[in-house]
Design a protein around this nucleic acid. Structure first.
Lengths: 208, 208, 208, 208
DNA sequence: AATGAATGAGCCTTCATTCAT
DNA sequence: CATGAATGAAGGCTCATTCAT
């Protein structure tokens, strides 16, 4: 199938690479595997990407960009949910978004665990999300407290490890969890949202 | 090089492999690297282990055994903490234990993210811990509720995703987190324990 | 990128290729490297040249042509130097010419060392030069000696290995020589010309 | 053919690599070619050598060592030839030695032409030979002249470009030369030795 | 219990070359 | 003339694994 679009080829490669990386990890996925799955010539991959790492970086940058656009957009609106019901709806939507981007998030988490990785995409991602959260809070509180570096640091730890990571973990492990503990996917989601509500979200009322 | 006793060699290999796996991942760590770092002959590794996977399984099984012994021991005691202070102390000790076993936990999490892994050590591990928790609760509540499969399922989701995973995440990512967000290790730990108290632990009061 | 005239493109490619071949050798220089350095599209190179070998052949043929024209020209004149001073001046000019064409000569020598090369440009080149020399001698000697095949053979060996090759070697290795033995370029040239005078040139007096 | 000597394997690899490098050049010789010609597994080459360059360096170092031993040995003796006949015999022997090591010398010359090469084996080699020559001269002259840096520099240029290089060139190009100019090998050698005598060697009488 | 040598498959990457546009 | 996309072979090198000693 010669002389195709070029842009489409690149997209196809990224798409199957995302799949394979999330299944087998970066090191566990060979260029040969990718080229075969994408139905393109192995050498062609090096026409579109500098090297193997360039592929994973392209993938991860794309979600950074996506989140950046999403959070930027929200900032302009004033739709910070006030009551618990709206908050829970918002969380459900965010979890659902993450589930749609599950594969890429898996890659992101996998890579963030390695020591030598320069690309801290997981943290970059979380940083964007947390900045948006902080903006929302600042609008409501209007005290100087939110500019205190210690408060910021404390807030970040709180959001990341008891908010962000539980969601990431759930999205990434849900399938395997349900298989291992013999639980239906939908129920697991409901239970998780309920737990998240009772833990992370309820803690926000104290913070606000 | 002289005829040492094989037990020490085996231990040395496991210890070195744990380090390397946690740094570079399973696929990113070669037998040659391990043999060099352990100062033993490459062929000798195959005397002590069936294959490469056998090494990582041995490593992960060792922590399963360790946790099994720990939780078994606790079961005999009746030291389930009743008041918040005792509970927080208990958590701090558990986090500190996890930090000591950080490297092996990293390996465990890394491997659990892959799709094709048969050995779900992360879940096995969590299962042991959660069983102990459930035993403690059953002793106090003595209602039939705790044998209800739905309650069990709900409890598991709650414990795993809002209790177990935040701790695992913190332990595994702390160093990189502190570097990225420019935060001192000790402070991050204090903030985390505080957040964990206000989220997961406080939710238990409702459950009890 | 706009429609330039193809002649300039061709020249640019040859010029850049000459540089790269002389630095990294034929095998060490890729078409991609050449196209990048020349600022032209990789495919375009195949519009101007049949294949990679065609490039090097074009380069080497150009110097053959150049020397052919030079020696042809000299033949018409009767300026064969008679006295040592004029001879040395002539040699200095020839060495200086070779130094200007240093890069292409390097390529020529490199390729001539390989066994499988069909195109022996080095010998073609030497042949042209030696023919001119022989013509000059024949004019002066006017004996039948110079048509004797053994005399010709002996003459060729003499000219090539103690005349031609020292000059080629000097031109091609001068830079690296000066670096390794910590010697100034100008002095090295003077010493070489002096040596050449005392060896190869002085031998001619006996021959004449 | 498993479980051989190890040392013998290494030697076999070096030997066929020397052949192939001298025929096709370093870049023109693939590891696959070497492994096939040596009858050993491709991967095994990397057990014995760090990388491809390590092979060529090993080859070239071996001749450096050889020459070092040869020249060291001669130093102790006082066999510097005094009369022309002895001198010519000595040269003939040296040329014959070079012809036996022709292949390795071809590799050496090929590599010395590249720009980026760190390994100046050709110069190292020449340096050893020239030091011996200088020692011989010093013994005879016993004047301070030989310690003058300019004299040394001049001597080096002379020896290298009108003595060393003609021999190297002859040895390396003899076969191709004879083919191109239709000349018998033996005659070419005789002619060359005669020319060398009349050029480089006769110049030494003036120097002494 | 331990070693060094050997294997073959597979790795990432680059190559010269082609061709539709 | 000129380009970008595509191909298939080959490049150097590392891998997990085996086995005679």
């Amino acid at each position: 199938m010669p002389k195709k679009d070029g842009y489409k080829t690149r997209e196809k490669i990224l798409q199957v690479a995302e799949d394979l990386f999330s299944e087998f990890g970066f090191d566990g996925t060979s260029i040969a595997k990718i080229s075969k799955a994408a139905g393109v010539n192995k050498g062609l991959i090096y026409y579109h990407f500098k090297d193997k790492k360039d592929i994973v970086v392209s993938i991860l940058q794309s979600i950074i960009g996506e989140i950046d656009r999403k959070t930027d957009f929200s900032k302009t609106e004033d739709d910070q949910p006030d009551n618990p019901d709206m908050l829970q709806d918002k969380i459900r939507m965010e979890v659902e978004y993450c589930m749609r981007r599950k594969r890429i998030i898996t890659v992101m988490l996998m890579e963030s665990l390695k020591k030598d990785e320069k690309a801290d995409f997981l943290f970059q991602c979380a940083d964007l999300v947390m900045k948006q959260e902080m903006d929302g809070i600042r609008k409501k509180m209007s005290t100087g407290q939110t500019t205190d570096p210690e408060w910021t640091s404390r807030f970040r730890v709180h959001e990341f490890f008891t908010g962000f990571m539980p969601i990431i973990s759930f999205v990434v492990l849900q399938d395997k969890w349900c298989k291992y503990f013999d639980c239906e996917r939908d129920k697991a989601l409901d239970y998780f949202l309920d737990s998240f509500q009772r833990t992370h979200l309820s803690s926000h009322h104290g913070t606000d």
